[in-house]
Design a protein around this nucleic acid. Structure first.
Lengths: 334, 334
DNA sequence: CGCCTCTGTCGAAGCGCTTCGATAATCGGT
DNA sequence: ACCGATTATCGAAGCGCTTCGACAGAGGCG
């Protein structure tokens, strides 16, 4: 019942078998008679046995822990990151792994330490920049890793992400179908573009290409995250482009400010201006009007990242790039 | 240089000493001559030695890892939770500990497993409810724990939190000083109150008491998080209480909707209505006007939680309750 | 000058587990 | 009824580290 420091040898004694037999029952790595298995499992249960993680890691050279590397940078939308994080944890548990949380302040040393000490078997990196200082390190590490996001040079790395270029294009296509001819993209704060964060740029590229392809007029602008700046930006946009009738907003923190500013300027959504957002569903649903949006499938991204990492841990080959297809949900803003 | 699987015995050989000597140099648990120490540290550096975490945990019965238990519930403001989380990680590293991330979906079993397998030495629980199912489990665990937040019965537990009652009172005092006589508190979504989350209730109590004490008129209302509901609620509030001139908002997600709604109804802030928020500084600063606010000192809460846990791990006695004092920053909304 | 106390170092015994090779016991085939 | 191939189980050797006790050598004391 208790579980306080029950060891495998106590289980073995209780079940009347050898220590190794218990181990094999638990790991399934050798055939064990149904009878013995049952006895052992009974003992495990009644004694409340939990294998000691350290001992297991030492003997098997597998910690059953993966690292989640999560730098927290300005302008990143935290709830989305958190969705990634939880889905990584949940997925990892499904493979019987736990998750060690590593943040930025330790820098590359943290990764190196966790990997070299065999604290973790592999790494999932989030919020990857185009020129990310952690990427070279990754290549010299023995431990496998998976990136959420794409660095500039992703050769030899395993990367997963939403296809943001496609997401940008999807928004444009939707607006084009609705008959809009002049549109604008309000993206991440400029600091995010300057840092070279991949997803912001890729959305912009997808937007720009699709605008050209559909023969529309369009601008792509960065978008800060406080109300006054958003309001000023929208004001200028409406002034200089009187024909503007569609907006794509790829900035979770600013999207409600955008709606507030449009309200302020007396523009009705979707009557005067249609708005498509790239954001999680809950934000889209909480806005007024509820926003037509392209969902960032955080849950699936995390799950895929873990799946790929597990494959690599098994020594299997995996595709370098995994791009998840975005889906657009129509609500009341277009 | 490499670091790939360098063991303590290789370091010992390289430095020409015994394995135990290397261990003592690294742990400082026995006196070692400066000369030997230098030689050993040199070898450690040139070989790129990192002690194997599993072996260390096995031999020393200390994993040097703490668990961060983070249920993700509806209505919780994620960025604030994330601030707690990062400050816990940062603080833990300062004590040479890593952080294992445990989420809700596994429930109590996750805690039990992590503790019983000696994966972690102690636990930090976040987002504690008044009647939290994890609390009884904690008491039966051998591993020490610290809660961020207070359950209804905190006897025998170590809890840290902002003094939310004081925070609520502080807001009232500030409004009273500014001459407001009739005020309202817009709090968490009703689901959060129903769940019995401590901080929401405590703020409300602090608010209510202070209102009475200062002879003001005041109501405390829950506040949902989508614009239309907030707008309707504000509309009704303005209608039914024409004398209302001050608002306390304790809801990070709704605070911008509140400002939007006031704008919509033509009320000027702070001219017609003064607004005080209880929220992180970045939200207060990004709003328009910048909000007078009481800061939730997430960084300090996390740091204190870890400090207390480390004290407990050392076997030292610690106070059961730690309440951090809120501070009010005056900006442009009052 | 012999005795005792420190200091600095060493060797060895585990920590609890996995895994390899060995050994009984069982079975089908002839 | 005997032999070789399974099948089920066991014992022992580590995995890399910490820690305990032992012990030389240095130094202080009477």
């Amino acid at each position: 019942m208790s579980g306080r420091g029950v060891t495998i040898s106590e289980v073995a004694r209780h079940a009347g078998v050898a220590v190794s037999t218990v181990s094999y029952v638990l790991s399934g790595k050798r055939a064990i008679s149904t009878d013995t298995r049952r006895r052992v499992l009974d003992s495990v249960r009644t004694l409340g046995y939990h294998p000691n993680a350290g001992a297991r890691a030492l003997a098997s050279k597998r910690a059953n822990v993966i690292a989640l590397v999560l730098p927290l940078r300005a302008g990143m939308h935290v709830p989305v990151l958190m969705q990634f994080a939880t889905s990584v944890v949940t997925a990892a548990r499904q493979y019987d792994h736990d998750v060690l949380l590593l943040t930025a302040d330790e820098g590359s040393d943290g990764l190196r330490r966790a990997a070299a000490s065999s604290l973790v078997d592999g790494l999932v990196l989030m919020d990857v920049e185009l020129h990310d200082s952690r990427v070279p390190l990754l290549k010299e590490l023995a431990e496998p890793s998976v990136l959420i996001g794409f660095p500039a040079d992703s050769a030899g790395l395993t990367c997963v992400d939403l296809d943001f270029a496609r997401a940008g294009a999807l928004c444009v296509e939707h607006l084009a179908e609705r008959g809009h001819r002049e549109i604008a993209l309000l993206g991440a704060p400029s600091v995010v573009y300057e840092r070279g964060t991949g997803f912001a740029r890729r959305t912009r590229e997808g937007f720009t290409e699709a605008v050209a392809q559909h023969g529309l007029t369009g601008v792509a602008l960065p978008c800060e995250e406080n109300f006054d700046q958003v309001s000023a930006e929208i004001g200028e946009l409406l002034d200089t482009r009187p024909g503007l009738s569609g907006l794509v907003v790829h900035n979770e923190a600013a999207v409600n400010h955008v709606l507030g500013a449009l309200r302020q300027y007396g523009r009705r959504v979707p009557g005067d201006i249609a708005v498509v957002a790239i954001c999680p569903d809950d934000i889209a649903e909480r806005s007024s009007p509820a926003l037509t949006s392209v969902l960032i499938p955080a849950e699936e991204v995390g799950r895929q990242a873990v799946r790929l990492l597990m494959e690599k841990l098994e020594g299997r080959a995996v595709p370098e790039d995994t791009l998840l297809q975005p889906r657009l949900t129509v609500r009341n803003s277009t």
